[in-house]
Design a protein around this nucleic acid. Structure first.
Lengths: 351, 351
DNA sequence: TTGTATGCGTTATCAT
DNA sequence: ATGATAACGCATACAA
């Protein structure tokens, strides 16, 4: 069996533009012209000869060399808070498709919502001279983002706004989506509605969702105006404690729990299961993110589908627009969410 | 508000090693020494001056230039069949963590199991002069992979073997994991066990799982020896048809369905839900991949947890080993899976 | 239609 | 302990 890993066998020579030039009997300038598709300044003859030589030599232009010369890496950086979250990967898919179609490669970085990691990644991507950055930011590194922006590198914010930065931003229209959901919940006649979210902090998507929740319940003069529960799902026991709080305070009432994202919903459902709390008999539930398990759990979980793939596509399209010279002020793109009603949110009347 | 996107404002100058040299009043060679950590050949004085200058100028070494010179990009390529599958992202997490710790960046590519896309990505990564490749291959592009290997680029196969390639390979120990699961199913006393898989083709993980299933049932003289169903989950109606087939043929028997991966399991559960087939009353189920919904669906779904994160870590560690010179023949690392028994697979006796 | 020469931002070799 | 210079692989201005 051939030992493909033996580095010492022969000091492998990767062919360069010079090799191709020599092989085709022309200058490297001519090869370069071929590579950049300037076929009209090439004779049919030489063009064919170049083609053959490239194939024979298995020549692949070195992107680093090209990038160095043209000051363009043809790679895009993407920083996500949690690559494990289907929300992120779906956006990633959208970004990737647009990248590929336009000849860009994608460098993916996962921060676990850790500002320190995020900072490291920003600097690393900067060192790679990325041509654009799509980021689901923690909001703690605006200084470094701003530095990137000063270098004329297009930056697009995803899922989280940062008005002070004036970057292009692509998000779900959280006010619209939340409004639609709450309207429905109110119609169903719930006496108590709990909103469960991860710590709101400065994360715009969280504050918009919680804010809309509160405003609407106030407007409806609903008893649950302050039933907003913040819990760090990584902190042992914290979520369960908040759940117990709500369950105790709403004992016997027609109630539901609205989770601000799919991952949190799943954690909550786990806890419910341990406590033998039944859905929707003991409590109704609904959440953001229409993940693939939603139809299958219990009576089906009511969800708000976010236009994730589309968010990715739009984000990358903004990057491209900036690259080709768009200099207008930062644009905000808010894409509508969709409410999927399932069995987990019955009406008080009994439909 | 400052217009950070206005490219024409001032022709931004990104500082280079020359700027730093000038600023610190030394030669670029000295700066280069500093950058590569050769502090023992630098006076305390100049070292501090360089440090200050770098900070003042916000200098970031250009990785393309460095890569060009040293013939090393410090980036790793990762090609996955489906980034949307939690199985993939979990591996990705492992790969990423090891990358970051060692100063490597990660280029992520998603093929949708399309050999053509895969080929494009391989060539693109080659053009970037990646220092290593981790790939969940379709198996249709061995020619190009081999070409990469000839260029002494370490390649690690993940989840799928390709013995003819002699690459390092990291997988779940499918025989071990499947054996453990089937032993359990047999103990539970099922009269019929269906194995549902995506088209086996040349994918080693699929064939090993199906093969082990078949061998074990034969050894046990079990009636389900040929209850192996292949279905393309993207083909409309195909999965449902196979399900109907099995349901009809096993009517009234104590039976279960074993799905070869989590995504497929979810599709099947969807179909069961539509048909109002109850778990485990009408049929038991189990699957590969211990995804986060498993404990929460129905009575809890029995699963085989794959050591995904660890697969990623091991894969990247193999890449690093090759980079620092390991020239031994391709290594196979088979990591054990874990059986998680839940309510979806009751015993005939009634436990 | 084709070629020559220079430079992109680094590192490495050889001096001093 | 520090510098001058060449070279990495390519694109571009300028010539021919």
């Amino acid at each position: 069996m051939e030992d493909v890993n033996n580095k010492s066998s022969k000091p492998f020579h990767r062919s360069t533009i010079d090799d191709v030039a020599r092989g085709a009997g022309v200058s490297k300038t001519t090869i370069s012209r071929y590579l950049s598709g300037q076929f009209d300044s090439l004779s049919e003859q030489t063009r064919k000869r170049i083609e053959e030589t490239i194939a024979a030599l298995k020549y692949r232009p070195n992107r680093m060399a090209r990038g160095l010369k043209r000051d363009k890496s043809f790679t895009i950086g993407m920083i996500v808070a949690d690559i494990t979250n289907p929300f992120s990967t779906s956006i990633l898919r959208g970004v990737e498709d647009v990248c590929t179609k336009n000849g860009y490669s994608l460098m993916v970085c996962n921060t676990d919502n850790d500002p320190e990691k995020e900072k490291e990644y920003i600097m690393m991507l900067q060192a790679h001279r990325i041509d654009g950055l799509i980021i689901n930011s923690t909001g703690q590194n605006n200084e470094y983002l701003h530095e990137l922006a000063e270098e004329k590198i297009p930056i697009v914010l995803v899922d989280r706004k940062a008005p002070e930065l004036n970057f292009d931003t692509v998000v779900t229209d959280n006010v619209q989506a939340t409004t639609k959901a709450i309207e429905f919940f109110l119609e169903q006649g719930y006496d108590r509605i709990a909103f469960f979210t991860q710590p709101i902090g400065m994360v715009s998507s969280r504050s918009e969702r919680a804010g809309t929740f509160q405003k609407m319940l106030e407007a409806a003069n609903h008893p649950s105006t302050s039933d907003i529960y913040e819990a760090d799902i990584r902190a042992e026991g914290q979520l369960e404690q908040k759940i117990d709080e709500f369950l105790a305070s709403s004992e016997g009432q027609f109630r539901m729990l609205f989770a601000a994202n799919g991952v949190m919903m799943l954690k909550i459902l786990n806890i419910f299961q341990l406590k033998q709390i039944r859905i929707p008999d003991d409590i109704g539930v609904a959440c953001y993110d229409d993940l693939d398990w939603a139809p299958v759990i219990g009576p089906g979980i009511t969800t708000i589908a976010q236009p994730t793939y589309s968010i990715g596509v739009n984000a990358m399209e903004r990057v491209l627009a900036r690259i080709i010279g768009d200099q207008s002020p930062g644009v905000l793109i808010a894409l509508p969410g969709t409410l999927n009603v399932r069995g987990s949110t019955p009406s008080k009347a009994g439909t």
